[in-house]
Write a protein that binds this DNA or RNA. Structure first.
Length: 105
DNA sequence: AGCTTGACTGTGG
DNA sequence: ACCACAGCCAAGC
């Protein structure tokens, strides 16, 4: 079993509507504190396959890390779920960051 | 085995 | 706040 990949997928699937997590946070919860870039890789390779809510993942600054059309799509999707933007590409992590239970098992 | 791709993150100026 | 650099890890070829 690919513990890391499986955990990352489950964690992302567990992010509720209107909430977000950061790449590094997801990596850390999947037992790879420096694995933010692997989370990126998984989003690329698995988001379609596993129907992941990829748009609920932002960087540590609360910014959308995508460009152009993908950025706009992510922004639309988040706004649809009630997330308000502080500026063009920034949201408040204090308000919207999700902290899952460790006990979910 | 080495190189490339990835939407990152922390540190220092 | 902004930019540049270094460190990080996994998958595909």
């Amino acid at each position: 079993m690919k513990a890391f990949t499986e955990k990352v997928i489950k964690i992302i699937q567990n992010i509720p509507s209107g909430q977000v997590m950061t790449y590094g946070q997801i990596a850390k919860l999947a037992d790879s504190p420096r694995g933010a870039r692997q989370v990126v890789r998984i989003l690329h390779s698995m988001s379609e396959k596993y129907n992941l809510p990829w748009y609920r993942v932002v960087n540590i600054r609360g910014e959308i890390s995508l460009a152009n059309e993908a950025f706009e799509q992510q922004k639309w999707l988040l706004e649809d779920e009630g997330v308000e933007f502080i500026s063009n590409r920034v949201i408040s992590l204090k308000e919207y960051q999700f902290y899952p239970d460790i006990d979910e098992g």
